[in-house]
Design a protein around this nucleic acid. Structure first.
Lengths: 190, 190, 190, 190
DNA sequence: AATGAATGAGGTTTCATTCAT
DNA sequence: TATGAATGAAACCTCATTCAT
């Protein structure tokens, strides 16, 4: 009988354990030894769960996107547009660290993966659609492009936080962005 | 004396030649052989001009920032706030490829370089201040933080373009951003 | 008591199950995982029956040699020299696949095992003598060296068949060899 | 200017230097570290000359076949069939070590390489034809299959010599084979 | 007896950098 | 200056073997 009861659960647990590593150094700079050390297992065990470093990274990216789904679902329901925008900003600030790292990993992933590969991989297409949908549902805007665009701008704010000592805090930046977005909506969406 | 100037010119020319490479694969994924091939010289010659891969990359980052100075200077003078914002958007669209790659390289650079190192290096502190100043001069806003924040959001749009096949073009996104910014300014900056 | 017999039987059954694997890829290229998969048991179970990959291989080599004993015994009795030679050829053709693989495994075994180790191991010395004896009994020649030599040449024909698409079939080659051997015997042994 | 003047010549020199290693342990058992040590160069330098271990081995196999071409050419001309057969035997004995190792390497190569790959590789098809042709030219027999078959049997004798302490020397075996072949030819080829 | 997850030494290969020419 | 062969540490990955269950 195997030692690990729920191997699938354990695999996900491992993905979470190496989230920081990839966020802090980037795919190419992280070594498999660093990863296995961060995971607290041997390199051999690592390759038991993940066929390669590339596959591990891809699964990490997918796993993160699921985490986000739950976070976004938690703030999806009800309220006016202004309220929903403020709720989004609030959640981002609450999970600042997670979202900053997530943004870094996505950027890294997109840079390191050929367009053709991303477009031909149904999983990543699905993830892309999932984010699009989450933003649409949350903001409930008439223009789906605007929903995506909001996420694009937020990504810019998140990327700005990388290892930087900012005098202008993330919370302040999100607050400013919220105001900007509401100003735009008041002028154009009503 | 002229010899030195030429050599310096040549060094800059070399930096420009490997701009694409770093933008497309990222610092850690690019090999020195790839670099020297892109430069059209031998690895030995490469090490004659640059002490290490790291130094080459740092000089590239610095060189790019100078290019940006010239681009921003070209649109700095005169006009109302709305006009200046629109001039900025126009220039970004005109040099889309350059600015996207530049954004990618900067993000890569920040991720790979320890905060302490950046903060202790006067060159990078200077570059940082330069961007801040360029945005301030261009937008001529009362709040310097807002100026920086505009650049932060633009960075988000630029990063979004990496190797992606977007149905929502860069020009359209910049246009939308311009409208958003103007809406905010009208409401808060008068 | 019967338990032990069964276990022994099972061990031999396992050896037969990985015969093809070693013949097709060679000792060093076959992994223990491939072996245990071919055996239809877990690696743990495999190590229960065989102390190591090396030991498994050695026991396989020994087991094969016993199979050959039975095959040779079946054609040992009676007839003229010519008849016995033809009977040998006939049997080789009948069991072509077995003998080709066996030859490959033996060659592999000899190459991977130090001379000193073979010479110091009574089992392998015994196997060697057994083949010598089988050929001597079968051909019933005055010269024991000639008997061994016949086997040497047959080995050459067997090795030639490895994974090759031959226009000159094994049966034809054995037939030609038979004629050659008889021609020699007619000239020198009578 | 490169250090090694004739890089091609040096590559061949390297191939000769690792001939023994492959002959003694077999492709899969030899490590690249062992190879580079035997070559007297670093692993990096080894990969400068050969794209992979597989490629190195393939080139070794090809290089050996060229050596054989020269050896066979040196004994190809003139004489009766009997004389030519005896000349062949003489040459094999003279270069015993070379031919034994060559036979081992070929056997190893054939075992480790998929049939499809060999058949689709024009170089190895050419090598195969070359050996066929060499034997045909040398023996000048009416039947080309017989020529190839002679080489097949010789291969058996060569394989027999691997690391074995034989009371029946290689020279004696070749002598016996020569007599056998002549007896056959006298009876069937006139 | 049996399982298969876990180990870690060691395999092949890469790559920043050096150095003889 | 310029070349590119050479280095060797370290990268990713494999595999014989062990061991908790």
């Amino acid at each position: 009988m195997p030692k690990i009861v729920d191997s699938e659960e354990y695999r996900k647990e491992l993905l979470h354990r190496c989230f920081n590593l990839f966020a802090e150094s980037g795919y190419a700079s992280v070594t498999t030894r660093q990863i296995s050390k961060a995971l607290g297992i041997s390199t051999g065990a690592m390759y038991h769960y993940f066929a390669s470093k590339q596959v591990l990274f891809e699964q990490l990216v997918e796993e993160i996107s699921w985490q986000d789904v739950y976070l976004f679902k938690s703030i999806a329901e009800g309220g006016t547009l202004t309220e929903r925008i403020e709720r989004l900003g609030c959640m981002l600030v609450q999970h600042e660290e997670h979202f900053v790292k997530q943004a870094v990993i996505w950027t890294d992933f997109y840079q390191h993966t050929a367009v053709t590969e991303i477009n031909s991989n149904p999983i990543f297409q699905q993830i892309d659609r999932r984010y699009q949908q989450m933003m649409e549902e949350l903001l409930n805007l008439s223009d789906p492009k605007l929903a995506r665009f909001v996420w694009t701008l937020i990504n810019g704010i998140l990327i700005e936080q990388i290892e930087r000592e900012n005098s202008f805090s993330f919370a302040q930046q999100i607050h400013l962005f919220t105001k900007m977005l509401i100003a735009y909506c008041e002028k154009y969406c009503i």
